[in-house]
Structure formats: structure tokens, C-alpha cells
Simulated assay, not measured.
Amino acid sequence: MTGILILEQMLNGLQFGLMLFLLAAGLTLVFGIMDMINLAHGSLYMVGAYLIATIAAASGSFWLGLAGGIVATAAIGVLLEVTVLRRLYQRDHLAQVLGTFAILLMANEGVRMVWGSQPLQLNPPAVLAGPVELLPGFVYPAFRLFIIGVGLAVALLLYLLVTHTRVGMQVRAGASNREMALAMGTNVRRLFTALFALGAALCAVAGGMLGPLLAVQVGMGESILILAFVVIVIGGIGSIRGALLGALLVGVVDTAGRTLIPLLFGQLMGPAAASNAGPAVASILIYVLMAAVLFWKPQGLFPAHG
């Protein structure tokens, strides 16, 4: 276990955590302000990745694919909110879970009908395809560094949006005290639609960034949706700051654990334990982290309700 390996895994965890933040930011705002459990959030991530891959393949440009996919996914999010999800706001959580889970299943089958069951190929731009030497003897993929830069830039823009704009003030007010925000004249329909558009666009950004690293395939949204829910529970429902910190914690713990735990088990208990018990223990680390955080902070690290 060398310092180079640890540094590489920390960068991988940072990159993965920032992409989780893009997914969790929209999800935590929808959950915190609208009090709505949206299981279809992962489907927007999947659809965004498919649209970006398709437009990039047709145009021959990753950048055109990314821009077109973000705009198209945001439009799909608005259409979904106006036509279907708006009817679920006043329902209980069970109805919301069932309704959005049905949307998730229909989205999977719709993607399979349009694009087929085979994964799509999404290649990074040529300028970012190679490695970059960060330290003597340590090279790191340029595209992963680009993902880290995009994640940090989006986090900064969201911070400025939430803390320095009128819309952000309404979002924070809705997350802290929804009834008071309504009484003060907040345009609820417009705010909800804008939040869904923003959340869908962030899903598409995450899909475009992770698409070249992971497979663009049917059902890719389910596993990452579970991690996004873990993030918002750790960070605090309705809190952007909590979503960022929770995503970074989950990203680093999950990525580093899957590499370092098997190595540690191999040194302490031999190769058999490393191949069998190591991955199993690594896969539950984020849930152990969530349980520990909730034991000390039942409302999460930075709950919107203070």
C-alpha cells in the first residue's frame, strides 16, 4: 500500500463524490422543499446519459452531445413535472413512491425500446483522453481531472445561486419552513418546475461525466439513486451544503474502501479473505457511515430545518 495508491484513490473518491453531489443536489431540494420522494430521479440520469451519447455520436462532438443532452433532459424534467409529478404533491409518501417507481420502470422499458438492450459507447473528447502527470511517477487520467473541475464549478455555482439570488432565498425558505414560504407569496408552481428543470439538468451533467467511465445502459440509474438517497440522509434533507459534504464522504469511503479493504484483508488474513470478505465489507461501508452519522446527528450533518 503506497502513497501513490492512496492519493489515486482519494482523487477517484473526490471525482465520484462530486458526481454524486450533482445527483443529490436536485434530489435533496425536491425532497426538502416539496416533501416528495422522487424515485424517477435516477431515470433522468439514465436518459441524460443516453441522449448525450446519441447526440455525440451523431454530431461527432462530445461537447455538442453534452450541451444538447443537458437541454433535452431539462426539458424532459419540466414535461414530467407538469404532466405527472404535479399530481402527486398532495399525496402521501407511499403514493409518491409507487407513482415514481412506475415512472422508473416505464423509463427503463422506453429506453430499451428506443436504444435497445446493448450499452452505448460514450467516448471522452480527444483532448482529455490521455493521462496527466501530477507528480513525478504519478499520472492521472485527464478526463477524471476534468470531472473534478466540473463538479467543483457546479458546486460553486449552486452555492452562489442558493445564497446570493432571490430564487435561492425562496429555495432556502421553502426548505426551512414551507408553509411560511407559501404565506409570503412564493410562486410555488414556478419554483417547483424550475427545481425539477435544474435537477434534471444536473442529472444529465452527471450522466455525461460518468458515461465515458461507466456503461451507458438500461437500469444504470437505480444503483446510483440509492447512493444519492444515502447522501441526502447523511447531509441533511433540503441542504445543499449537506449534500456536498455527504457526497464527498460517500465517494471517498466507497471508492477507497473497495480498493484498500481487500488489500488490508489480504495482508492480515490471506488471499482467500481478500477475495471473499474484502469486497463484501467494502460494499457496506457507506451504510455503516450513514448509521454512524444518524446515531450522532439524527437529522443529518446540516439539516435545512436547523
Rank of each mutant, 00 (worst) to 15 (best):
G42H: 03
A155P: 01
V167D: 09
L210R: 01
L157Y: 09
T73Y: 13
G300K: 04
L182W: 10
I224C: 00
V188Q: 11
L214K: 12
P212T: 03
L213P: 00
L248M: 01
R87S: 08
L5N: 13
L263K: 14
F196I: 07
L210C: 00
G65P: 02
Q299Y: 13
Q9N: 15
G211E: 09
V84H: 04
A95R: 05
T100Y: 07
V132P: 12
A72E: 02
T100N: 05
I226F: 11
A228H: 04
E222H: 06
R258T: 14
G270I: 04
Q299V: 00
I70V: 15
Y50L: 10
T28G: 05
Q299D: 13
I37R: 04
G137I: 05
P124E: 13
G211V: 06
V154A: 09
N12E: 02
Q217K: 14
L128Q: 08
A243L: 08
G168Y: 09
R190G: 15
A53G: 06
G235L: 05
L249K: 00
P303D: 11
A40R: 10
A304K: 02
L64W: 14
T255P: 05
A215N: 12
Q170H: 14
R144Q: 15
I226G: 03
P303Y: 01
A204K: 05
I286M: 12
L157N: 03
E81Q: 15
A25M: 11
T255I: 13
G251F: 01
G137D: 06
V97W: 00
A272N: 09
I284Q: 06
V230K: 02
F295Y: 15
Q299S: 09
V288Q: 06
T186G: 00
V293F: 01
A183G: 13
G246F: 08
I52F: 07
F31T: 13
Q217H: 05
I148G: 04
M184E: 07
W296E: 07
L51P: 03
M290I: 12
V132D: 02
P136C: 06
G174A: 08
V132G: 11
P131N: 14
L64Y: 10
V253I: 15
G300V: 10
P212D: 04
Q118V: 05
G278E: 09
Q96K: 11
L213N: 00
M169T: 13
G199A: 13
G266Q: 10
